[in-house]
């Protein structure tokens, strides 16, 4: 799909303060379609950023555009955006079906279409058996799913989801992730905040790492990782039949800063400032020395490690 400026979500030097408390500060982002994960510890500003994108809060400074629409125009924005918030309150007395149906009615659709879409999306999130029960009686996971259904109901081009996998059982979790993937593959935006780094790693096309209201890094995780390779050399785990020889040969190269034989044997962990050069030399070693390489894998080329390096040991689930 051809990308135009109107395909992007842009934030230009956006700040938001709550009195003297910082929400987010000087955030500049240009998000492409795909799955974008917002990652950071509690209080990093992830929810504030999502609320800013959806107009639930207004920026103290800066400009935001969602596919060319300003968040201050909810009548245009929410035809395009679906937002599943973390707020766990619902209009009183409504069943799951009524909740989605009422939401769709605001789009001005005919009742029959609203009913059809509501039934379809409720089925999509697996709540058809509970559709006519009051939302107030739902479990945490069911409430999470009905919020997701609300965000999906009108088939938006942009999905903003605040901790959408919280409280979901493993099966629904997998289905939900597959749903995000499908949306992203259709050229839509899926913006997800999460504490669960291995899931972020699994689903994200790009990440935005946040800490203390600032964007610490953004982009594809491999690119972010390689940007910090000088301060944090890349780690590569190699399984082979001659780990000692590999370690000594690798250490002769100027870009390798550490070669560590792992205690379980048959494996060596290399830290290098130039992974590409290392991979080329590894091929050479394998050919010249007849070394049998069983496996090569980057050991810290993931969100977890990047998070650790950039944000440090702040609270986060792994």
């Amino acid at each position: 799909m051809k990308k135009t400026p109107d395909d992007r979500i842009t934030l230009d030097n956006v700040s938001r303060f709550y009195g003297e408390v910082l929400g987010v500060n000087r955030v500049t982002l240009s998000l492409e379609p795909g799955i974008t994960s917002l990652v950071g510890p509690n209080g990093a500003g992830k929810t504030t950023l999502m609320n800013l994108i959806t107009g639930l809060v207004h920026p103290s400074r800066g400009n935001i555009s969602v596919l060319g629409i300003k968040p201050s125009q909810p009548h245009r924005l929410f035809g395009t955006v679906g937002y599943a918030t973390q707020f766990d309150a619902f209009p009183k007395g409504l069943s799951g079906f009524q909740f989605i149906y009422s939401y769709l009615k605001f789009s001005g659709m005919a009742s029959a279409k609203c009913k059809r879409l509501a039934c379809s999306v409720i089925e999509q999130v697996g709540l058809e058996d509970a559709a006519h029960r009051k939302v107030a009686g739902y479990s945490k996971g069911m409430r999470q799913r009905i919020r997701l259904a609300q965000a999906l109901a009108h088939d938006p081009r942009v999905l903003v989801l605040d901790e959408p996998l919280n409280g979901l059982d493993p099966l629904v979790r997998a289905e939900t992730i597959a749903l995000f993937r499908r949306y992203a593959d259709e050229g839509r935006h899926v913006i997800v905040s999460s504490h669960v780094l291995h899931e972020v790693d699994m689903i994200s096309d790009q990440v935005v790492l946040m800490s203390g209201g600032y964007v610490v890094a953004e982009g594809q995780i491999q690119n972010v990782r390689s940007e910090i390779k000088q301060e944090r050399p890349m780690q590569v785990l190699i399984r082979c039949n001659q780990p000692g020889l590999l370690a000594s040969k690798a250490f002769e190269q100027d870009h390798v800063v550490e070669a560590q034989l792992l205690p379980e044997g048959g494996a060596v962990l290399i830290k290098t400032r130039d992974a590409d050069r290392f991979y080329r030399s590894l091929n050479h070693l394998a050919l010249v020395k007849g070394m049998q390489i069983d496996g090569v894998a980057p050991a810290d080329d993931n969100v977890n490690s990047v998070y650790e390096y950039l944000i440090g040991g702040e609270e986060v689930s792994r």
């Binding site: 639930l56 929410f78 035809g79 309150a89 009183k92 789009s107």
Partner: peptide, 17 residues
């Protein structure tokens, strides 16, 4: 106070409406 106002603010509706 009930923390349910966001329901309306997430709809494609002018605030004046």
């Amino acid at each position: 106070l009930d923390k349910s106002l966001h329901f309306y603010l997430l709809t494609p509706m002018r605030r004046e409406v």
